[in-house]
């Protein structure tokens, strides 16, 4: 079984985000790490390949620079190889362009039985790329998967809904987006980290994918500061602070 996982590389979310003053788009320079949301997809793919009795996990990623640190993390977890689309023209690309580019990148690899993605990225969180990718490739899709099993060439997925979950069946090949917490991503072993250094990462430009030009029909016109919520009273609990809460609720007439 061949599973392709879409992995986004993002600036460390622990660092404060910044907007590029010239373009008002999110700054995505320097070191990028594997988006935590995609660690679940990588783990799920590795488990499905093991359960299938063999195969390979490949990665596709799009980034405005040549960074591969995030890809190396996923390779160290056990993925076999990666295709990175890196082109300055992709800086500030919208979700639709991202999906088209990722779709073209999958063609650089052997045909996939399954393509996995996260439900939403940590820094962009449009939550649209996986379903757009499915449409670009003309494939069926199941979004918001909580569990994924493959049996007899078809998927059985428990799909998160607002009210509970649906059981969904879907033939392969297909695109599936997985929710956070579906599986526990493994920590790369020392051996895995060493092995990842020599695994193949093919870096390609838009031209290499046969895409001449990209554009998107949206412009950021301005950025405002949001009105701030004032912090109120903060008190240290001396054993009686619960009384303050009762009083507060009383004043609001909720008790």
């Amino acid at each position: 079984m061949h599973v392709i996982v879409c992995v986004k590389q993002i600036p460390d979310p622990a660092l404060p985000g910044e907007l590029d003053p010239a373009t008002n788009t999110l700054k995505r320079e320097g070191k990028l790490i594997l988006d935590e949301s995609d660690g679940y997809g990588v783990e799920m793919a590795l488990q499905l390949v093991t359960a299938a009795g063999g195969g390979e996990v490949s990665l596709v990623s799009m980034a405005p620079n040549d960074e591969v640190s995030g890809l190396r993390t996923a390779l160290a977890m056990g993925a076999a190889k990666a295709v990175l689309v890196s082109d300055p023209a992709l800086s500030g690309a919208d979700a639709l362009t991202t999906a088209k580019v990722l779709g073209a990148a999958t063609k650089k690899l052997d045909d996939a039985d399954l393509i996995l993605a996260g439900t939403e990225s940590s820094d962009g969180y449009t939550g649209t790329v996986p379903e757009q990718l499915a449409e670009v490739l003309g494939l069926p899709s199941v979004t918001f998967a909580k569990t994924v099993e493959v049996a007899d060439g078809a998927l059985k997925v428990d799909r998160q809904t607002e009210a509970g979950y649906d059981e969904v069946s879907c033939p392969l090949p297909a695109v599936v987006s997985v929710t956070a917490g579906v599986v526990e991503p493994r920590y790369p072993s020392f051996k895995g980290i060493m092995a990842a250094k020599s695994k193949p990462v093919e870096t390609v430009t838009l031209g290499d994918l046969g895409i001449d030009a990209v554009s998107w029909a949206q412009q950021i016109v301005s950025v405002d500061d949001a009105p701030e919520r004032e912090a109120g009273e903060v008190i240290e609990d001396d054993g009686e602070a619960f009384g303050k809460i009762v009083e507060f609720l009383d004043n609001l007439k909720v008790i």
Binding site: G138, L139, P140, R159, G164, D166, E167, S169, C170
Partner: peptide, 14 residues
């Protein structure tokens, strides 16, 4: 066509 091949087989409400 192929893109529509996923099907809901059961619905669970919590």
């Amino acid at each position: 066509g192929a893109a529509g091949a996923a099907a809901v087989t059961a619905v669970h409400v919590e």
